[in-house]
Design a binder for these strands. Sequence first.
DNA 1: TGGTTGTGCATTTTT
DNA 2: TGCACAACCA
Length: 818
Amino acid sequence: MDAFEGASLSARAMAARPAPYLDELNPAQRQAVETMDGPVLMLAGAGTGKTKALTARIVHLLNTGRARPNEILAVTFTNKAAREMKNRVGRMLGETVEGMPWLGTFHSICVKLLRRHAELICADDDDEDGVVEGAPSLHLKSNFTILDTDDQLRLLKQLIQAAGIDDKRWPARQLASVIDAWKNRALTPDKVPSADANAYNNKGVELYDQYQRRLLELNAVDFGDLLLHMVTIFQQHPDILRKYQNWFRYIMVDEYQDTNVAQYLWLRLLAQGHRNICCVGDDDQSIYGWRGAEVGNILRFEKDFEGAHVVRLEQNYRSTPHILAAASGVIRGNSNRLGKELWTEAEHGEKVRLIGHWDGEEEARWIGEEIESMQRGTRGARAMGLDEMAILVRASHQMRAFEDRFLTIGLPYRVIGGPRFYERMEIRDAMAYFRIVTSPDDDLAFERIVNTPKRGLGDKARQTIQMIARQNGVSLLDGATLAVEQGAIKGKGAKALGELVVNIARWGRMTRATVAADGDAVVEDLLTPQPTKTEVSHVELAQIILDESGYTGMWQNDKTPEAPGRLENLKELVKALESFENLQGFLEHVALVMDNDSDDGGAKVSIMTLHAAKGLEFPAVFLPGWEDGLFPSQRSMDESGVKGLEEERRLAYVGITRAEEVCTISFAGNRRVFGQWQSQLPSRFVDELPEDHVEVLTPPGLYGGGYGAAAPSASMSAGVEARAAAADGYNSPGWKRLQARASERPVSQPRESKASVIDMQAVAAFMIGERVFHQKFGYGAVIDVEGDKVEIHFEKAGIKKVVSRFIKPAAEADDVPF
DNA sequence: TGGTTGTGCATTTTT
DNA sequence: TGCACAACCA
């Protein structure tokens, strides 16, 4: 079956004349839709109807007969966005959406393409004259498996060990991220610039090379390869590139600000011919710099594609003026922008609300109650449903506080973007079973399941299998068979392994039987007698595999609290099989298609990270945890400096602009970090909120009432006055002044408070260069002061960041000069 | 082999 | 604080 075949809706779409969808657009949107030839950059702010415009453009292309559905390449970043766009196109056309095979994520499209050309990826392919001795040159095969992060780590770990590198000092995940970054920048091992060569203890490139070779041996690719391989193929095979350039007559890219170098190259190669490329994006919403996205791509679009039309979408249909103004105020702090001013016709609306809390738990408690009262309609103009509210956090560990709280008060919630369904351990185990059954060469799958459930096969047994397999040049599964036959493995393990091998072979036969039955054997079925034993559907077979292998049993006997959930997931997995023809088809699609959108009814509050919230909108949004170090994240600032800070600010912008009616920002004075209580300063972004559009709320509990003793722990129990002081400092309009004072005051001052009392005002009482003493780290010199955190170069312990109340001026600690 | 205990470290963000 | 991994013991 060729994906290039025409699609059913094309004929009708092309015949259609009227274009009612155009009437629904505003002038800017309409311009973006009707500028059909040549490069177009649609600069679309948050909530300006860019998806609508993009969809209309697709429909218009079809409607005017400029392209057939399968000649349009439309790329999104998430499966969800792709699905949504398909649905919208279908709705606009009043047709089903089967006909847009090239609407999808970068990854899903590249999988399709790469399966057609996999054999072009090989080792040592440019050497014509016999280089390889003995070893046949390796080619990728079209049935390659896609490595997930876990497999990738396992593989790298093996390589690191083989290279004799101390895994503790250079963990595999570090190598993984180095390689990942290279792939994002479209750097194959031979192209890694020498400036990067010292990455990973100078062994980075070498290991990268070995890793790629190993992947080829395993007939596998990782996420980055999907794109990178396609770029390589396009670069090395102009004829193939030309074929696709001609085929994809129109190219559309959503969220262009998030493209990395590899994606950018890929797109540029494809668009080179006709240059009918339309990119949509918002430089202010570029929040994936950390995984290689280059805001530069959107900033230099006009240079890349000369004569590009730039259309600005600036009318916002989503939020109230106050919310919009607050977001604009924050994003104004960034310097490198294309510049857009969003405006709205909406008039009324609440100001953005700001509230400070004593600690993270109180914050969760307050938000919980606020949600309940909004639900009842006691607060604000109308009663809201739970699914109209969302809590957006910076880092996923912040979710815990809310989950705890909501569980105790019985507030239904849903966490979006947790570990994806197919990434869960049990799902991957089950998939590994399916994989080894359908393709016995899959060594990764074999490794994963040999001893799951426990079969008494430990490290030694596995090494033996490895060895035998390598000696005979066969797969691990065959190696295991040999090992059993030769008696290389003894005892319980041998028996269990023997059974496993036999079972896998048997299931494999059953699979092939079901494939045949599902296939085109209708006529033959009438002629040949029914194959008696093979009358199982692939769904039943999957169940049989899981049951007979003992995998289901393993979880049934497991008494940990997660076990029932895992069994539930397995059931779901088996159910998901129903929509596929056979196991093989399922395996090909699952990794890229399945997500955990389990819409198990009932209105629920959504909890998610800011990243996961991009593209979504909610009437009411809570943005907790606006504290320096948490948001903006310390790490982001440490690693990428101003660039990092600007990305954090864009994240703040994304957060605020998710809100339609009510936006509530909050921060806590104290937070538990690694089980330690730490005092926090409000985020610098809080200061950047324009005062006229913000209402500062007073937290409950300030006047003695409210929540009783919320003292976080005995040692830190601060007593009423400190608490009141904290709350007062933050929530009277003085919160801004307090911060100003703190930052103006890197001067050494005698501090009055004792360390046992939390005093918000006791911040930053040290001077840069001052010699200080710390109980644990000893003596050191102050390098930097930031809020109440002081960065110190300790003589013994190196550079550390310490909360100021844990250090003393060196003179106080010890008068003896050094 | 497999289970247990102990240590050290960690929290961004994900197709 | 809690998880992951390593060393240890049965």
